[in-house]
Amino acid sequence: MKKRQWMILGITLGVLVLAFGMSFFFAGQKEAPEMKKPPVVKKYVKTVPVSYEDIQTHVMAFGRVQTAQSLDLLSEVSGRMFEGQVRLKEGQNFRKGTLLFYIDDKEATLTLKSQKSNFLRDIAAILPDMKIDHSGNFEAWEAYFASIDINKDLPELPEAKSEKEKTFMATKGIYSTFYTIKSAEERLKKYRYYAPFDGSISEVNMESGAFINPGTKIGTIIKTGSHELKVSVETKDIPWVQLGTPVEIYSEETQQSWAGEVIRMSDFVNQNTQSVDVFISIEPGKQKIYDGQFIQSAIPARKVENGMIIPRSALYNSNEVFVVEDTLLKVKQVFVHRTMDENVIISGLEVGEDLVVEPLVSAHNNMIVFKLEQKDIDRETGAPDSTNPPVGGNLGSN
């Protein structure tokens, strides 16, 4: 029995050895599959040759139009107020010298006439003494007495020819009464308000017929054809703005444009906008402009000599760019003259170098890349030419 077990074990091992041997034999007869190498992926980048020129930069700023001259209509006297030659309504236009409003001055007028009548009486009382004691100036005072009209302003007093005459007039109260009347005449003029310029009424606070006291605000007027634009300029751009610079002003909404000039700049930072306020005068033209209109301005800044404009996205670490040298990416530092919203102005590279002008993803120094030639770009769509597609992908970000 023991011998028989050993025979069965030996036959089993022999069959297994024979099976493994035959499998290796037939496997060796089969041809090995061909190993394909992965395709070489070429990375393409968009480049432009470095070139320099003088660049006129601009500071773009938005703001609202405001009148350059605005006045509040305030009463200096009390009484019943009435509208003048134009209606006291918002938007009402007027010419310079137009009576805008007046305050009932009947009582003040009568009081002034009474004062002038008393003054005439005082002059008449001193004429006999003048003829005797100051005959040398009697005719002048007699002519002055005849020229006084209580409905008109008092003429100027004759000049005293001696100290004695001046003392005589002072003791009679002539000078005191004269200047009291002149003061009343000036006050009477404040009962009527005439327009100091051509303009329009922008605000009305009191209606015609209302009783007003001194200091009451009746309304607000603005000057026609005198506007300025208040814009907020970032502090980094302020050194580029200069007083007296001509400015192009335009409205994209109405497709209108005007000429202007930088007339003043604030010496402090606006706490609300964290920028500096710049004021631009607007020259009146054929195209009408409105107070409160929101428009844009292009302020010519200083000219950059020998600079190059590149996309802001092509700049790394504030002063580094990529250039292509013999299919290798190279990191180089540049001098940034000015940073704008979408572009920057740089210098510091050799003329003719191939500068990468698109943002790169996962790029590094000495990385192998290829320039994306113009023929590889579809001229109509800006996409790679389908008839000659480059192998691999573009490093530029979407």
Rank of each mutant, 00 (worst) to 15 (best):
L13Y: 08
G14K: 07
G14S: 13
L16P: 03
V17P: 00
A19P: 02
G21Y: 05
M22P: 02
F25D: 08
F26V: 15
A27Y: 05
E31I: 06
A32P: 07
P33S: 09
P33W: 07
M35N: 13
K37H: 07
P38A: 13
V40P: 01
V41K: 12
V41G: 06
T47S: 08
V48Y: 06
Y52D: 00
V59D: 03
V59M: 02
F62I: 15
G63M: 06
V65A: 09
V65S: 04
Q66R: 12
Q66F: 05
Q69N: 09
S70M: 13
L71V: 12
L74W: 05
E76G: 15
S78Q: 11
M81S: 05
F82R: 15
E83M: 11
Q85A: 14
Q85W: 04
Q85G: 03
V86L: 01
V86F: 01
R87C: 00
E90P: 05
F94I: 09
R95I: 09
K96L: 03
K96H: 02
G97H: 06
G97A: 08
T98Q: 04
L99V: 08
L99N: 08
L99C: 04
D105L: 02
D105A: 14
K106R: 15
L110S: 13
N118A: 14
N118Y: 12
F119L: 05
L127M: 01
L127D: 00
G136E: 14
G136R: 13
F145G: 11
S147Y: 09
N151R: 15
K152S: 10
